[in-house]
């Protein structure tokens, strides 16, 4: 595989995983866009362009995994908040199980390779 190809598939992996990271961040309650995006970008290696999270949030809303509502803010104009739906909660639970299996499997293989 060319190095470019590896980088590309890694970024596809990230793209898939970030969706569920958003859902995970909303597990314990609603958050507004800026807060959500900053939390995600604090995770090393997950997101480099914060702006690309917004289209993803739209997709999650379209897929009914999150809903949005507006709330007054103390410091400025009203903010759009994101909240998990029941569907979102289910999707997150499913992913959590699948991800653990996937991660353990990949880790196992990567370790074997190292030891040889």
């Amino acid at each position: 595989m060319e190095p470019g190809g590896a980088r590309n598939s890694l970024s596809q992996l990230r793209r898939g995983a970030v969706e569920y990271c958003v859902l995970a961040l909303l597990r314990d309650g609603e958050r507004y866009g800026f807060e959500l995006v900053r939390k995600l970008s604090e995770v090393d290696g997950l997101v480099t362009s914060e702006g690309t999270i917004y289209p993803l949030l739209t997709r999650l809303r379209r897929d009914r995994l999150v809903t949005t509502f507006w709330r007054e803010s103390e410091t400025g104009p009203p903010r759009r908040y994101y909240q998990l739906t029941d569907g979102g909660r289910e999707a997150l639970a499913g992913f959590t199980v699948e991800w653990a299996r996937f991660r353990d499997g990949v880790d196992g293989l990567l370790k074997d390779e190292e030891e040889q």
Partner: peptide
Amino acid sequence: GRRTELVAEIREHVDDGLRE
């Protein structure tokens, strides 16, 4: 509609960031 919304979201983000 989608474009207007995207631009509005990014604008809100910028304003939040500047306030922060």
